[in-house]
């Protein structure tokens, strides 16, 4: 599936989103420290961001959700096969950990560009012991 196809129709129907919200909360529920997936409205904008990056996940996700539309509350992860779990975790956890609030709460501020220190690699004193050790390769 390519992006143009995704734009021609809703990525997920409202029923599929509702189902996903229920399932996502089983993976990432609310705790005293962390919001649940639903608290972030994960099944809407955040999931769309994941699926824009990963259009290959759309069809497997739709299929997975359509089978559970009637009773998502009764779903347990043990009901799912390995491939479905992989799809679901990539979508749900992928969306959850892109959220700025979540990132702040876990102390993660993303991959930043840093300036390399000019002072050395950081363990010069420790390396002296290695430098002083005898050759350890096998002569041959």
């Amino acid at each position: 599936m390519i992006l143009e196809d995704l734009e021609a129709q809703p990525i997920l129907t409202s029923h599929q989103r509702e189902c996903l919200a229920v399932v996502a909360d089983k993976i990432l529920p609310r705790t005293p420290e962390m919001p649940s997936a639903s608290d972030l409205d994960l099944s809407n904008t955040l999931v769309d961001k994941v699926l824009q990056s990963r259009p290959d996940l759309v069809e497997p996700l739709r299929k997975l959700l359509d089978l559970r539309l009637a009773s998502p509350e009764s779903l347990t992860l043990a009901d799912l096969n390995t491939q479905d779990i992989e799809t679901l975790f990539q979508v749900v956890a992928g969306a959850y950990y892109m959220d700025p609030t979540v990132r702040r709460l876990i102390g993660y501020d993303g991959q930043r560009a840093l300036t390399l220190p000019r002072s050395g690699f950081g363990a010069e004193e420790l390396l002296i012991e290695m430098m002083e050790s005898p050759p350890r390769y096998r002569a041959c």
């Binding site: 089983k26 993976i27 990432l28 529920p29 705790t31 420290e33 962390m34 992860l77 779990i85 975790f89 990539q90 956890a93 992928g94 950990y97 979540v102 990132r103 876990i106 993660y108 993303g110 991959q111």
Partner: peptide
């Protein structure tokens, strides 16, 4: 690695969920 890398790592073949994942 980042948080998704952590979430997708499993030492026993099963991904963590719920409070364990957090």
């Amino acid at each position: 690695g980042g948080p998704l890398h952590a979430a997708m790592f499993s030492a026993d073949g099963r991904l963590k969920a719920g409070e364990d994942l957090h």
